[in-house]
Design a protein around this nucleic acid. Structure first.
Lengths: 183, 183
DNA sequence: TATAACATGTAACTAGTTACATGATTGG
DNA sequence: CCAATCATGTAACTAGTTACATGTTATA
């Protein structure tokens, strides 16, 4: 539910659709992402539902911007969602695993190359979580003391990303060994 | 792309929409799943595209069944897809992490309860991969020798599930400790 | 001088979910 | 007698993607 992500970000402070996209890209993108176009249409729906309100701001030497503010009703909707326990398992779509599942007759060399590429990508992503992501959280926590508790939560989600990449690398290495032995 | 999953299963042998659903539920569900209704509509589209063909089979004392067979064109489409390397990172939607990200002001007890529930769910899922899933793969490999290589691939995807649950449990335990210390 | 960043939006489409509709047989 | 299993499908909806359309300013 993208709407709750937008409400969550707007609760910190008012933002434009453009800024919401940037914020998501540098914070939740590894567990929640959206295209710019979907953000704009969702903001429109949220405004119709009265959970956000917007003001068009005129700017010199830059395009006008529409700034969205969360309403009381929006805060309430967000809080209700946060208070509802998550019970259904995450329903994942994992293209690489699906392909692999049906790949018994593919060339061994091709599969090894695929896994090698994945290893590089996951290594890079892991390093990203360990440096850039970690730094952003530290900086915000240091510069805005009121967000100290929030930063602990952000760190928990960052840590998930790090552990996930670590796990992926372990699995890729195991799978490469299996291919070399069994094929 | 559900269509490739269906083509992949139909390449083993002809099946009905109902059987495809059952097959997915007991094999790929942890990385690819679909509702019965989506399977039926996708099969219809695949037939219009000439990648599968169907025959209505009359049955005594049971409803008629429509059996789908993969065509040459379908086999070709599947092979082309399998031969295309996966380059874009999986785009994940993870509701629990999104909620947690915005949960700095939620009750500590509520958050601990949420994580406790998640721990139970992931423990169960891990055990499922370690017993039922493992057994199914072993049985098929033992009873159909031609599927021995396929079984190695299935095992790799099963192992991913097992490692993923293991990683989740580790993260949940870490996060519970963090909450107890910092909140 | 070109391209990245700023800035917003709509239209058409694909993918997936929920709800509805029907109905026989088998097992507890 | 009731629930589960077998069996197929449509309609309405929500979510998300791709492509199109427009235009300025700062920076390399």
């Amino acid at each position: 539910m993208l709407k709750y992500a937008l409400l969550g970000f707007l609760k910190y402070n008012a933002k434009t659709g453009y800024e919401l996209k940037q914020t998501m890209d540098t914070s939740t993108s590894h567990f929640w992402h959206a295209k710019q176009s979907q953000i704009y249409t969702t903001l429109k729906k949220l405004e119709e539902a009265g959970q956000v309100s917007s003001l068009l701001e005129h700017q010199e030497s830059r395009p006008d911007r529409r700034v969205y503010t969360i309403t009381e009703s929006g805060i309430k909707a967000l809080q209700e969602w946060l208070a509802k326990p998550v019970t259904d398992p995450e329903t994942v779509k994992h293209t690489l695993l699906l392909k692999l599942f049906f790949s018994a007759n593919q060339e061994k060399q091709f599969l090894l190359a695929q896994l090698g590429l994945q290893r590089t990508l996951h290594e890079q992503q892991m390093e990203h979580y360990q440096s850039e992501t970690k730094d952003i959280i530290k900086e915000v926590a240091a510069s805005v003391p009121a967000l100290k508790q929030d930063a602990h939560m952000w760190e928990a989600t960052r840590r998930f990303g790090e552990l996930y990449e670590e796990m992926n690398l372990k699995w890729i290495n195991e799978t490469i060994s299996m291919l070399q032995k069994k094929f």
